[in-house]
């Protein structure tokens, strides 16, 4: 049963991240996910110090505030100060992360907040934190649903609802922001809607799977799907399927080599991208050579 919960946790995170990742990749903002996942660290510690508890809600709020603050600072540096986008991202998140590290080394001894856990996560412990029990009888008997499954399911429903509801504004502000602004759609508003959702997703996800796997899931499946299709709706669905496949294969890889589950899942994400890079029918390296050979 543990295996099922772990794979389901991975799949839920992968699906939310893959959907949002499509927009990040298309907006050429993939590294913003990385930045957010690190920049939330001081938010978590500040929230802990202010609230004096380790319960999730204040920590979550603290983290989300710093996630949005991070995207705001990046936006400010690029738009107003005319800084290169990658330089702005690098400067902002290392600064915020460093503050988090100072807070962590100064106060972590009281807090029992572990930096390793935040960065690498421990998906294997997900099944032990049971939130609800459900007696379904039969062969399975009492189902012990972990807390993380509840939270991550709600998150995925939220992300799907957002994309379903705001498909058109997200599509147009991603493809052609100038035209969107010309017909009266606020590009800034949708930028922060998207970035706020990415912050929330990152924070909710890395509690169970760690920041590195979150970044892998944000970028990898979307970048892979981009190589396989030329329609956005198909890209969104493919990215989700690739994310889920990575979670399943990653779990079995981890069992097989007896290593880190999050590490194995992230490795599979990279592996699947490599496969698409070579074998994609339209954009793959082999496909291109084959067509060239056919032409000559």
């Amino acid at each position: 049963m543990d295996a099922f919960w772990i794979i389901l946790t991975g799949s839920l995170v992968a699906s939310s991240c893959a959907l949002l990742g499509c927009y990040l990749v298309l907006r050429k903002m993939a590294m913003v996910g990385d930045a957010i996942s690190h920049a939330v660290l001081p938010g978590i510690f500040l929230a802990y110090m202010l609230a004096g508890t380790r319960s999730s809600v204040p920590l979550l709020i603290g983290a989300a505030v710093f996630g949005v603050l991070c995207t705001f600072l990046i936006e400010l540096l690029t738009k107003r100060m005319r800084m290169q986008n990658d330089a702005a991202i690098g400067l902002t998140f290392t600064f915020l992360f460093a503050i988090g590290v100072i807070l962590a080394t100064r106060f972590a001894s009281y807090a029992h907040l572990d930096q390793d856990c935040i960065l690498y996560g421990e998906i294997a412990y997900v099944p032990f934190d049971v939130g609800w029990t459900l007696d379904i009888g039969g062969a399975i008997g009492v189902l012990e649903i972990p807390v993380a499954i509840g939270i991550l399911s709600a998150l995925l429903v939220g992300v799907i609802a957002l994309i379903w509801w705001a498909y058109k504004p997200l599509f147009i502000t991603t493809f052609d922001p100038a035209y969107a602004a010309a017909i009266g759609i606020s590009t800034t508003f949708w930028h922060y809607v998207l970035m706020g959702t990415v912050s929330l997703t990152t924070v909710l996800s890395f509690e169970s799977v760690g920041a590195i796997l979150v970044v892998a899931f944000l970028i990898g499946p979307a970048a892979t799907a981009y190589l396989l299709t030329d329609r956005l709706p198909v890209m969104l669905i493919l990215a989700v399927l690739i994310g889920i496949l990575s979670a399943i294969l990653g779990y079995w890889l981890a069992v097989w080599i007896n290593g880190s589950i999050a590490g194995a899942m992230a490795t599979v994400v990279g592996g699947l991208f490599g496969l698409a890079l070579f074998f994609s029918p339209s954009y793959g390296i082999i496909g291109k050579h084959w067509r060239k050979a056919e032409l000559s």
């Binding site: 298309l26 050429k28 956005l232």
Partner: peptide, 18 residues
């Protein structure tokens, strides 16, 4: 308004009709 053609990324996954 018709923006300059170079102002957008034409590798975007969309069709002409989209």
């Amino acid at each position: 308004y018709v923006p300059q053609r170079e102002s957008v990324d034409w590798d975007f996954p969309a069709s002409a009709l989209d």
